[in-house]
Amino acid sequence: MIIDLSGKTAIVTGSTGGIGLAIARGLADAGAAVVVCGREQGKVDAALATLRGTQGGALARGVVADLAGAAGCQALIAAEPEADILINNLGIYGVKDFFEIEDADWEEVFQVNVLSGVRLSRHYARSMQARGWGRIQFISSESALNIPAEMVHYGVSKAALQGLSRGLAKALAGSGVTVNSILPGPTRTEGAVAFIAKMAEQRGVSQGEMESLFLKENRPSTLIRRFASPEEVANLCVYAASPQASATTGAALRVEGGIVESIT
């Protein structure tokens, strides 16, 4: 299968590192003109530099905006008013006991993880619908189905994305615009590596040992028994953004290594 996204413009939020950058690179490798978005100019520039060797690298461009609020989303829209592909990847997480999660924590995680996607999708879906073609994705998590006790607010926000994705797919039924959620599992991003390194130091083990311990203690149902790479997650996202995925919509697409104990 050859995926060709030449002539398509793709916006990837939270794309200066981790899964977002891997998705941006995968889309650019397929020929898309990718818009990288982040809060810091230096990180946006560095991300663009990594795309230069891709098929669509010369077309890649960046926008500096904080999408945690309405003003930042509007800044991105003003800079890039049209898109064929929207990947709502931006997200935050943090370990916190449920009884210590304040209202401000809930508000922050919903503003970043959910409402950023709502605001951007509300804008870009209209023109996609008018053109009769588009792809919208929400990067959810297996934590949407297995709500982690150590960060309930994160899991709830990712579950909200499941409902948002399905509802928007229904609103766009028959339009040629597909909407799907992507469910990664533990993925070896910069943030995850730092998280594991800190735990390894606290427990006096190597990072490799800590990664295995984390999975054994927190995600024992994993079938691949390792963290996925950002590129493995991106591969699914690129397919879902392709013309070949035209009959896939309203779906929760799992790339979580078999953690979820379900055959559906």
Rank of each mutant, 00 (worst) to 15 (best):
I224W: 05
E211Y: 10
D29F: 08
S221A: 12
L90S: 14
G167L: 04
Q129D: 03
A160R: 00
A125D: 12
L86Q: 11
T249E: 01
R225Y: 04
V63M: 05
L115F: 06
L215R: 05
G17E: 14
A24M: 07
L5P: 05
A245I: 06
G258Y: 03
A169T: 06
T54L: 01
A241C: 15
A125M: 12
G132S: 06
P81H: 10
S140A: 12
S229G: 08
G62C: 11
Y124P: 13
N89P: 07
D84M: 10
E231G: 11
G163F: 03
Q74Y: 02
A200S: 14
D105F: 03
A241R: 02
G258I: 06
G174K: 13
S116Q: 10
V36A: 04
N180T: 12
V109N: 00
G117N: 00
A49E: 15
L59M: 10
Q244D: 15
R219G: 09
S141Y: 11
G56R: 02
V156D: 03
L120V: 03
S140T: 10
K198V: 13
Q207S: 02
L215A: 08
Q55N: 08
L183R: 03
I139N: 02
L161G: 06
A252T: 06
A24R: 10
R25S: 09
Q55P: 07
S242I: 10
A65K: 07
E232S: 05
A192R: 14
Q41D: 14
L120M: 03
A234E: 02
V36T: 02
G185S: 08
S221C: 00
S121Y: 05
A241L: 03
V255G: 07
Q137M: 15
A169Y: 05
L164N: 05
A46M: 05
A234W: 01
K8G: 04
G26L: 04
N180M: 09
